[in-house]
Design a protein around this nucleic acid. Structure first.
Length: 458
RNA sequence: GGAGGGAUGGCCGAGCGGUUGAAGGCAUCCGUCUUGAAAACGGAAGUCCGCAAGGACCGGGGGUUCGAAUCCCUCUCCCUCCGCCA
């Protein structure tokens, strides 16, 4: 949620944000909102005046109830009418406000879609960072860096084979079973088994070790949450169609629960309605949890394999901080992302996302980390680093008392995918596949996996 | 699943229709005393909206009343006992 006073004082700033972020102007109807806001303020003033008179009358009623009665009844009737009107106005007012995006960071590029995202950097194992002049935003979604990325599985010992799709590699290894997943749970569900499951636990251990070493607080959150949590992080209302709702049968009476699509809402909700002390900030935390997504609206997309599934595991990094600390944490998150991919010797690029592609309304600034699938020859998003400034903090009512004793301020929040485990497995299978159908295990994972190669069962 | 009891300021806790924005205690802050501290004593102090007048806030929402922290309805949460359970 945006600071109402700022929108009121500076509506053109919001108009520009709505345009830049490509928010549906019918939903984020600024002019209608401004009109409602004016009416509301006027109605509230009238209500306050009535209340003032009511309070006086109540004093009179103490000594002479009969004298107060008639006028009191009138006042009650009038204020009831105004209250009703305020309720109606406010419903619409809030409904529009919920669609106002965060104010974009000055560095957020303008653009029409993902083709306008800016390449920040690209990294190739054995070569390091691509020179800046090779990066190019003008070449479309697969971008300037794509031309310089390896064209054959980068960790293959032989060049002499046709690379396979991760779904086929996984199936050959007996480690990715989408058929059985579909039988048990429907389409877009899968089992990871044996060596591929080992791979997932290995990556998890590698990254968790790092996060603990960097001082991140571990957290094990609830994954079923109330509407307010999802609203607080701005996954509602805009992302509502992505979320599974638990049907009321067999659920305690009155419970209305949703399966989280990320542990982000759960993690931040731990601090909902709290006032922290500035000395406690920043709070950095991580959680490794399943995530659930309906994928409504993308039913035809990425059907094969485990790229787009209804349930996947993710290590999520979150931070609460002051405005001044946000930039540093944004970069720290990126540092963890790059560390992991470099540990795994995975080619990747990082793109600064443009207004039209910067994720949910809360984004103040956002970048994607995209692994390069050298077998398939394309980039795939594996991590998203987002600075949401005070947008979520305000919605969730998370504040902190400044060290110098001033009035409480709204806390800033940042989030980043530490690792979407399924996606990283795809990237590993792709980049480490071998001519004989085996998959080499990245050096950094060998001690966790317990073997150097994953081989099809004989 | 069954049966009860609760929710009041930073914390504990009174109040059960008007003089209560809310007693009392603890914690906090400022004095006095002290070499300093503690103790003791005196004093200050809630949050939000509004330029102000003023308004709102006793878990949330609704109702009764001239008037509600107090009465009624409802929701949420917590606790106790029994049952079941990873």
């Amino acid at each position: 949620m945006i600071e109402v006073r700022e929108v009121r004082a500076n509506p053109d700033r919001m108009r520009e944000a709505i345009r830049k972020r490509r928010v549906d102007p019918k939903k984020a109807d600024l002019d209608r909102w401004l009109a409602l806001d004016g009416e509301l303020r006027e109605a509230r003033q009238r209500l306050e005046a009535l209340n003032a008179e009511k309070n006086k009358l109540a004093q009179l009623g103490r000594t002479d109830p009969n004298a107060a009665r008639t006028r009191g009844q009138e006042l009650r009737q009038q204020s009831r009418e105004i209250e009703e009107r305020i309720t109606t106005l406010q419903g619409e007012w809030q409904g529009i406000l919920d669609w106002f995006p965060n104010f974009p960071h000055p560095m957020m590029p303008s653009g029409e879609g993902e083709e306008d995202n800016l390449e920040e950097c690209a990294w190739i194992p054995g070569q390091g960072y691509l020179p800046k002049d090779k990066l190019d935003k003008a070449l479309g979604a697969q971008g300037g860096a794509a031309a310089f990325m390896p064209k054959h599985p980068v960790h293959a010992d032989s060049k002499d084979f046709t690379p396979a799709h991760h779904a086929d590699i996984g199936q050959r290894l007996g480690g990715v079973d989408t058929a059985q997943g579909a039988k048990v749970s429907g389409s877009r569900f899968s089992y990871l088994f044996g060596d591929v499951a080992r791979l997932q636990y290995a990556i998890q251990q590698l990254l968790v070790g790092r996060l603990l070493a960097e001082g991140f607080e571990p957290i094990v959150p609830p994954l079923l949450v109330r509407e307010r949590s999802l609203y607080g992080t701005s996954h509602f209302p805009e992302g509502r169609d992505q979320v599974y709702q638990i049907a009321s049968h067999n659920v305690e009476e009155g419970a209305e629960l949703f399966l989280v699509g990320s542990s982000e809402p759960s993690n931040f909700s731990y601090f909902m309605d709290r006032t922290l002390r500035e000395e406690e900030l920043p709070i950095r935390m991580f959680a490794s949890t399943p995530c659930f997504r309906s994928e409504a609206g993308s039913w035809g997309k990425d059907q094969r394999g485990i790229k787009r599934v209804h349930q996947f595991d993710k290590i999520e990094m979150n931070a609460l901080c002051t405005a001044e600390q946000a930039e540093e944490i944004y970069e720290q998150f990126r540092g963890v992302n790059e560390w992991l991919l470099q540990q795994l010797e995975m080619p990747y690029r990082i793109v600064e996302k443009c207004g039209a592609d910067a994720g949910y309304l809360a984004s103040h600034r956002q970048r994607d980390v995209e692994a390069w699938l050298s077998g398939l020859g394309e980039f795939m998003e594996v991590m998203t680093d987002t600075n949401t400034s005070d947008y979520q903090g305000r919605r969730m009512n998370i504040r902190y008392k400044p060290a110098d004793g001033g009035a409480p301020k709204v806390a800033w929040t940042l989030n980043d995918t530490g690792c979407a485990l399924g996606r990283i497995i795809i990237a590993l299978l792709d980049n480490y596949q071998q001519a004989d159908g085996s998959v080499k295990v990245p050096t950094a994972l060998r001690s966790y996996v317990g073997k150097d190669y994953l081989r099809p069962p004989t």
